[in-house]
Structures are given as structure tokens and as C-alpha cells.
Design a binder for these strands. Structure first.
Length: 585
RNA sequence: CGGGGCGUAGCGUAGUGGCUAGCGCGCCUGCUUUGGGAGCAGGAGAUCGGGAGUUCGAAUCUCCCCGCCCCGACCA
């Protein structure tokens, strides 16, 4: 295929659009791949569509190679299946709902678990039919509260979603692993750098779950790399500190600590007051901070929850939200304190907390608050703190909760070992073992070898296809523009005619034909009256990895070969150029 | 949904009560120019996000609405 720049439907922009923050967003707009249609929905221009189709093709090949079969559902669906699983209401405002002319409810599918489950139920009824994995590449709709960064979070986006169906847990494990392997091959081929992290299963239900996160500054997820693996911060499990003997520890003692309602002021006061001095200085890590939240469950009932964390840590709201799901967290406001006179803001101590205490507020502590650990903490009276308050001796908790912010050096069970690094990533794939939630809700059963009805167990696996395009752009660009990996480049060769003489145009036309003959698609920059500077800049912005310049040296039988990933260009004899380029891809 | 910001031509922007809304890029016509975003001359393109109000006079002030972007909470 040949595309002539003089005819290609695009307009490159010299300046960054004011509303584009992420590199992928800005470059895809500037290079003429995309136009915004509405918040979170984009029009694909010819070059963009070529890139999207390349990405789609790689994904499809890998799914087929793994033995998964492609189907295609409508995006417009009736509400009934979603009512059966409860998601018609549970999905909340993120679901696009609409009505037909008769007033019947429909939705634009945000994901298709229900439909796949019903399809298998419709056709299959024996264990002999299983396992089966089906997938589709399809447009999804989610009324996102906040579409972001161009393609990174859209309200309309393309997703590859697969579903596996197995007779038992062992089978699910195998199907899951097959998808995991297929995903690794897929992302490797797409040129996406990724980390597989343990994930929270969240709203989908189910157990084992891993995410493919593409490390990128523009990413919305935070993950950790540890000595033994990687995990989304929401899924991290901190190793509990071992209990120690507290027989020799000094008794708890209440001290006046006026105006110390914050950890900083408390530490400063403790260190500057001779009476409180010890053989080292106090630090925030010696203090026990107790924070109260309100939790609202799905029925709308509100309860209070107190959380104790070491004073040098903040509570990570994402981890807290994930830990208490489906209850929703909100801050404990002034009026809530008014309802609980036992709680002295800034001086809350564990003695006033717990289901068995007068406050009856559930009290959960960080796993580092272990039996035998000793703390400075609130004495439940304004201007007073208690020192040497020992867990297991002077106070108890109702249990543990692991929601403190994670820091480098933390010791984890998931992922194993010490935290080495925290980083941002874009979730480009997610695989999980759904289990029987949907099969149960929709009554998907097959007969086993004993003639008994058995509920099928499922896995669900997604790749954000349009998001993957953005991730590639995010990970592969330089200050000049995009740089497509050769596996997904919209076009193989960008042929720049650097000059206005007729022989150059004729030579370029001939070369383009030869490249086509060799199976390579070509953009020819044949624009008249456009200076070479503009052509070079556009070529670099558009990001085709192989650029051939046909210019000055053409008369001597040479063209210039530029690799967007290499430092320098080389001169290649015209009769060798096709073979040379062919080798690159 | 909470917080912050922004809406002037395809893009980037100036203009904070006063004449015909200015500039750069892009676009059109002509001439010239062609190895790193050329030059000259001429030209087209804007209901200043929408509505209501204040005023002799509104892009500019007030109110309401809409849209967009960023941070946070949710997801491929």
C-alpha cells in the first residue's frame, strides 16, 4: 500500500494542543492520528486507524494461536441479563443506559461477562464441551467520571475480552495460565514494556487476579516491585511484625503535652521536654496515630471505624477503599465528633476504641502494631498523651487492617520480600479467575461424567486495545515525535522526497513500487512546494521507524536510510535499499 | 462526585468597559525558493461556549447553564 502525503487525510500540528497533557495524547493529536469527538471519545484518522488495526491484528493472532475462538456481541444489549447478575444497578452511573421507542431498557455494554455466560449456556451442556475460551474485540462504553489523557481513559474504547469456561478449579487454573502466557506474548510483540502485578479482584468478584501494568509517568496505578515480585498497591499485604515479650517494659504513663494535636507537634514536644527524654530522640515512628472514618454500606447504614497506624505513616485511601469494599469511606467530620464525646480530636487513644469499649467503635490496627510494641499515643483528653502504652498489655485491637501507605523497605507477604521501588503504571491488561459468580447467577451448568449438574467456573481476561495504542505512544517517543515499534507501525517506510526535480519524484515512485512488491507499505512525501525541513519534521513526528530520504545523492545512485531508533543515518545504494529495509522489519 | 483551572478562527494566543477583536502557525491566489518548520504581495476564515441581565456602549461586569482540562475517588 502507498500513501501520498499530498493526498493523505491528516494535518500535523506544530504546537501542542492546550488540553493535552500526556505525551501519547499530545503526539497522537499533533501527528494527525486522532481528533477528539467528545470528552473521552476520539475519531481515528487514517494513520491512527492503521496503527489501531496493527495492534488489533497482533492481539487477534496471539489469541487464535492460544486456541481461543473469536465471537462478536452487540454493544447494544437488553438489560435483563444484567439484572440477573445485579449489575444493572450495581454498575451505577458508569453504565450508559438508554431506552428504545417502546420504553424498553437497554445498555451500552461496559463488559460482557453476562453475554458470554449465556452464550455458552445456550450452546453447551456437557463436560465434554469444556474447556472453552472465547473472546471478542469490541467497543465498550463506560460513562467514566473522568475521561483522561486522550486514549488512556475513554468513555468509548476498544477492548479485547476473553472468557474461559471450565468444569473445575484445576481446569480454570490451566485456562488462566494459558491466557497469562498469551498475554505475555502479545505485549512482547506489541513492544509494550510491562510488569505483571498481583491485583485486587475488586468489583468483579473472584479470587486470583493479576494486572499487566505498563510503567509510565502518565499511569494511574501505583505498584511496587519487591525482592520477590510485584503488586498493585491495593493488593499489597504487609508482613505482620512478630509479637515480643513485654514483661520488662516500663509502665504506661500519662503526660501533659499541651497543643500537640498533630504528630509533628507531639514529636517536637516530646524531644524538647527534659522529663520525657530517652537515650535517643523520639520520632514519628514511636507514635501511634488513630484515625476515624465513616463507612457506609450498600444498604446505606453508616458506622465508624478507627484505624491505628504508626505516626510516620499516612493512611493510603486507595488501599483503605479496597480493604473495606463494598463499604464506602468518608471522613469523620466535626458533627461526627460531636456525636462521640469520648473521642477527643487530636488525642484519640486506643483505650477509648474497640467494639468492647464504651464507644463501641471498631478498632483495627496496622500489622506493625504487634503484641509487645510500645507507643506514644493519645490519652483521650485534650493536651494529654500516654507514653509506653504497650499493645497486648495496655490495649487491644479488634483486628488488623493493612491500609497504611507503602514505603520502600517495607516487608511484604504479597509481593514477597522487601519493597524495592514504587512506580506508576498503566493497566493495559487484567486477567482473573472469576470463579462461579456469573455461572451461578445465570445458572450455567453442565453434566459431569456422573450425570450430575455442575456449575461451570470461569475466568475473565481483558486487554485495552485502544489504550494499548496510547501506551505504545507513551513508551516509544522522543522529543521529535512518535517512534512506532516495527511490529505495529502504521506504515513500514516513510519515503521523503528531498528536492523538486522530476528524477527524484520518478525515483521515489519506482522505489515505492519496489517496496510494495517486497510487502512493505509506504508513505511518500510528494508534497510540492513544501520545504525539506517541514517534511523531515513531519516524518519524525509521525514516527514511522524507517525513513528513506531520496535527494541529493540520488544522482549517484544513493539514498539515505534513517532509523528512528538509531543515532545516525546511512547511505545505501539504491539497488540495495529494498533488501536492507526488508531486513529491519 | 469533591477540589483547582480554562473556554476568543483548524491550532497556539493577545485583548479585563469604548472605534472595524489583534498577532503567529495553518489555509487560498500569484511570483520566487527547496537537505532541517523559506521570502514577498494579496486574500478567506470568529454568532468571542450558550442564555439572561447591568450599561449610552459588553469578549471584558453580574447571574444561570453548557463544555473542556488537571488533581483526587473508580476501571481495560
Amino acid at each position: 500500500m502507498q500513501y501520498r502525503m499530498s493526498e493523505l487525510f491528516l494535518r500535523t500540528l506544530r504546537e501542542t494542543p492546550a488540553d493535552a497533557e500526556a505525551a501519547s495524547h499530545s503526539l497522537l493529536i499533533r501527528a494527525g492520528y486522532l481528533r477528539r469527538a467528545a470528552a473521552g471519545s476520539y475519531t481515528w484518522l487514517p494513520l491512527g486507524l492503521l496503527a489501531l488495526n496493527k495492534v488489533t491484528a497482533v492481539i487477534r493472532e496471539e489469541m487464535n494461536r492460544a486456541g481461543f475462538q473469536e465471537v462478536h456481541f452487540p454493544a447494544l444489549l437488553p438489560k435483563e441479563p444484567y439484572e440477573a447478575t445485579g449489575r444493572w444497578s450495581e454498575y451505577g452511573p458508569a453504565l450508559f443506559r438508554l431506552q428504545d421507542r417502546r420504553g424498553a431498557d437497554y445498555l451500552l455494554a461496559p463488559t460482557h461477562e453476562e453475554m458470554f455466560t449465556l452464550l455458552v449456556k445456550d450452546l453447551y451442556s456437557s463436560y465434554k464441551d469444556l474447556p472453552i475460551s472465547l473472546y471478542q474485540i469490541q467497543t465498550k462504553y463506560r460513562d467514566e467520571a473522568r475521561p483522561r489523557a486522550g486514549l488512556l481513559r475513554g468513555r468509548e474504547f476498544v477492548m479485547k475480552d476473553s472468557y474461559s469456561f471450565d468444569i473445575d478449579d484445576a481446569g480454570l487454573e490451566v485456562s488462566y495460565q494459558k491466557h497469562r502466557d498469551a498475554y505475555q506474548r502479545t505485549f512482547d510483540r506489541l513492544g509494550i514494556k510491562y510488569v505483571i502485578v498481583s491485583a485486587q479482584s475488586g468489583a468483579m468478584g473472584g479470587s486470583a487476579s493479576e494486572e499487566f501494568l505498563a510503567p509510565a509517568q502518565a499511569g494511574e496505578d501505583t505498584f511496587v516491585l519487591s525482592e520477590g515480585g510485584a503488586a498493585n498497591v491495593e493488593a499489597i499485604v504487609i508482613a505482620p511484625t512478630a509479637a515480643i515479650n513485654f514483661d520488662s517494659l516500663p509502665a504506661a504513663q500519662v503526660h501533659d503535652t499541651p497543643s500537640t494535636a498533630t504528630i509533628d507537634t507531639l514529636v517536637e514536644f516530646s524531644n524538647s521536654n527534659p522529663e520525657l527524654r530517652i537515650d535517643r530522640s523520639w520520632s514519628a515512628a514511636d507514635t501511634l496515630k488513630n484515625v476515624v472514618f465513616k463507612l457506609t454500606n450498600q444498604q446505606g447504614d453508616v458506622r465508624a471505624l478507627a484505624i491505628g497506624v504508626p505516626g510516620d505513616r499516612e493512611i493510603d485511601m486507595r488501599r483503605l477503599e479496597a480493604a473495606v469494599y463494598p463499604e464506602v469511606v468518608s471522613p469523620f467530620a466535626e458533627e461526627d465528633f460531636a456525636k462521640h464525646p469520648k473521642l477527643v480530636k487530636g488525642y484519640i487513644g486506643p483505650q477509648a476504641l474497640g467494639l468492647n469499649s464504651p464507644s463501641k467503635i471498631q478498632y483495627l490496627v496496622d500489622p506493625r502494631i504487634s503484641v509487645g510494641s510500645s507507643w506514644i499515643t493519645g490519652a483521650n483528653a485534650a493536651g494529654k498523651h500516654v507514653f509506653n502504652l504497650v499493645m497486648g498489655r495496655d490495649f487491644q485491637a479488634d483486628g488488623n487492617i493493612d491500609v497504611a501507605e507503602v514505603q520502600v523497605g517495607d516487608n511484604c507477604l504479597v509481593p514477597t520480600g522487601k519493597v524495592l521501588e514504587l512506580a506508576r503504571g498503566i493497566e493495559v491488561g487484567h486477567i482473573f479467575q472469576l470463579g462461579r459468580k456469573y455461572a451461578q447467577a445465570l445458572d450455567l451448568k453442565v453434566l459431569n461424567e456422573n450425570g450430575e449438574q455442575v456449575t461451570v467456573t470461569m475466568g475473565s481476561y481483558g486487554i485495552g486495545v485502544t489504550r494499548a495504542v496510547a501506551v505504545i505512544a507513551e513508551q516509544h517517543h522522543d522529543e521529535k515525535g512518535l517512534r512506532w515499534p516495527r511490529s505495529v507501525t502504521p506504515v513500514d517506510v516513510h519515503l521523503v522526497i528531498a528536492g523538486k526535480d522530476e528524477p527524484l519524484f520518478n525515483g521515489a515512485t519506482k522505489l515505492a513500487a519496489e517496496l510494495n512488491q517486497a510487502g512493505l507499505s509506504v508513505i511518500i512525501d510528494d508534497r510540492m512546494g513544501v520545504s525539506v525541513g517541514v517534511k523531515f519534521n513531519d516524518a519524525e513526528l509521525i514516527g514511522i521507524p524507517t525513513i528513506i530520504v531520496i535527494g541529493k545523492k540520488y544522482a549517484d545512485g544513493q539514498v539515505e536510510l534513517r532509523d528512528r531508533f538509531a543515532e545516525q543515518s546511512i547511505d545505501v545504494p539504491i539497488d540495495e535499499i529494498v533488501a536492507t529495509v526488508k531486513q529491519l522489519s
